[in-house]
Design a protein around this nucleic acid. Sequence first.
DNA 1: TCCATTTAATTGACATATCAATTATTACTA
DNA 2: TAGTAATAATTGATATGTCAATTAAATGGA
Lengths: 156, 156
Amino acid sequence: MPTSLQQELKMRRPFESREQEAALNLARTNDRLQIEFTRLFRQHGITPAQFNILRILRGAGEPLPSLEVAERLVTVVPGITGLIDRLERLELVCRKRPEADRRVVLVELTRQGRAVLAALDTPVLELHRTLLGHLSQRELRQLNSLLDKARAGLET
Amino acid sequence: MPTSLQQELKMRRPFESREQEAALNLARTNDRLQIEFTRLFRQHGITPAQFNILRILRGAGEPLPSLEVAERLVTVVPGITGLIDRLERLELVCRKRPEADRRVVLVELTRQGRAVLAALDTPVLELHRTLLGHLSQRELRQLNSLLDKARAGLET
DNA sequence: TCCATTTAATTGACATATCAATTATTACTA
DNA sequence: TAGTAATAATTGATATGTCAATTAAATGGA
């Protein structure tokens, strides 16, 4: 019997391996979820990458060096500069050069940055429930543990 | 006990819901996998999106209209034009205007396009095994079925 | 038959991901 | 301490994803 994904992709043949199916399935599912979050964030004038940076900064509780932000984002280093540029233009973060080591650029949340995050907290939680709430807690636990295990094979 | 993902993201607090954890987990895991495939494709001069288009065309077994390709890609329509432009410049596909309906642009694999795909078949299968082969067949089945179920909640 | 509607694809504008190469600063070492 | 190596960040180039708006062709109804 063809899998649900196979039908969705209009594939004429079955997958060549379950590993392949899982990789495509992951990509597809992630795309679908991201599209919904992208829409939500846009209503508040920001993009998913920008939201992630703001959330990281709030989570850290203190200004972070650019590269530290990039690392937590899984973003390639050069990209971080433009991201922070745009956030600064939106006045959601600001840059600071510490005297101690003038190579570093610290990124700090502004009051407005905090406000945007605060406005998004509830809608984001609700969207998570809307999108994945039809899975039971047990299924979510299983899914999380399988994903953790999948990533464990990719050292680093 | 903090989850594996929570540590990886250096989060100071636990996730606010398992739904949230699953969404971030999915994004993170997908990113990691995509990075590896991007590297493999680059060695053959193409990008992941380009590979997907070539694979879709081979799978279809006949030339497809641009929008049909876009739909199977989960790509927003306007993006497809540039993608096909670049593939055409690489001479991996060609465009054709059918006489029957001159609004349509059919995209067709070239011999070189087929060759690139053929060269990638084995490496791609091997990479799937390398990245996800540490999961048992039973775990992969579970993962696939959970992902199918997750997507089922997002009616197209 | 003529015009409004629909459909297929494209364009232009912006945000992002990616790489290689560069600048500025600090650290190390011979 | 002079000079090289390492670190933090940036720049520039290309590819992609996203939207709104446009062009070109086909369809349908009065």
